Simulated scan of single mutants.
Amino acid sequence: MKIIDLGKTEYTQVLRLQKKLFEQKIKEEVEDTVLITEHYPVYTTGKTTKPEHLSDIPPDIPVVPVERGGSITFHGTGQIVVYPIINLQSRKLSVKNFVWGLEEIMMQTLHELNIKSYRHDSYRGVFTEKGKIGFVGIKISHFVSYHGFSLNVDVDKKFFRHIIPCGITGIPVANISDFIPDIPIETVKSILIEKIKNIL
């Protein structure tokens, strides 16, 4: 499995790369690949997005409809975004176990930082006592995954106030920096990469 850190990127640039790798992976022309990035501000809408979830979008931030599951979310600097383009069948993974694994990567990363987290009975993602901190939205076709998950490190939470993140009301959004002020994103990323290697 190849892990590629792209640094800070425009969302549509990485979406094109994902789709290219996805098509190549279906044909088994490339090995399993995990892309890691921070995006410049963007909103993305998934299959369950409703108009009321995005009624207050700032006009200067793009909104990109994508094929993944879930509703609307925000990506921005201070958030680690991970896109696994992998063959689930060759790894003997069901979709349920794959999603569980993505959540587990985030939860084990938080555990290393002494932050308690948990899964919610009703929603996908990772939650803490201060709010939802990890987000999952995937697409599977021909047993190959793309899209993925994001973990908030120190993202500006004002951008989430313009939407109903993931269509969930009543649960705030949290950052790792709410627990550990001034934590470098590279510190979190290095832990996260180790967990990706161990779990995927």
Rank of each mutant, 00 (worst) to 15 (best):
V66L: 02
T9K: 15
L54A: 14
P51L: 11
K189G: 01
G69Y: 07
E129I: 05
Q108N: 14
T109C: 07
G76F: 02
I138K: 01
L113T: 00
L110H: 00
T49P: 00
V144K: 09
V14C: 06
V30K: 13
I176Y: 00
I85C: 06
N175E: 04
I196N: 01
I61L: 12
K19R: 15
G125F: 06
P181W: 10
I80D: 00
V63R: 01
V81Y: 08
T77I: 13
L102N: 07
I133N: 03
H53Y: 12
E186Q: 10
K8Y: 14
D154T: 12
Q79Y: 02
F74R: 04
V66H: 00
S90M: 10
P58Q: 11
L93K: 11
T109Q: 01
V63Y: 01
H120T: 11
P65V: 11
Y11E: 13
P65W: 06
L93F: 13
I36D: 05
D156Q: 06
D5I: 12
I26P: 14
T9P: 03
I36Q: 05
T12C: 09
S145W: 13
Y83V: 05
T169P: 06
I199F: 10
T187E: 09
V136Q: 04
N152A: 08
K158S: 14
T128D: 03
I138P: 01
L151I: 04
K2I: 15
G170L: 14
E104N: 13
T45W: 00
K20E: 15
D182P: 05
I171Q: 03
V14P: 05
E23C: 05
N87W: 08
G137W: 01
G7W: 12
G148E: 06
V153H: 00
I133F: 01
V81H: 05
Q108K: 15
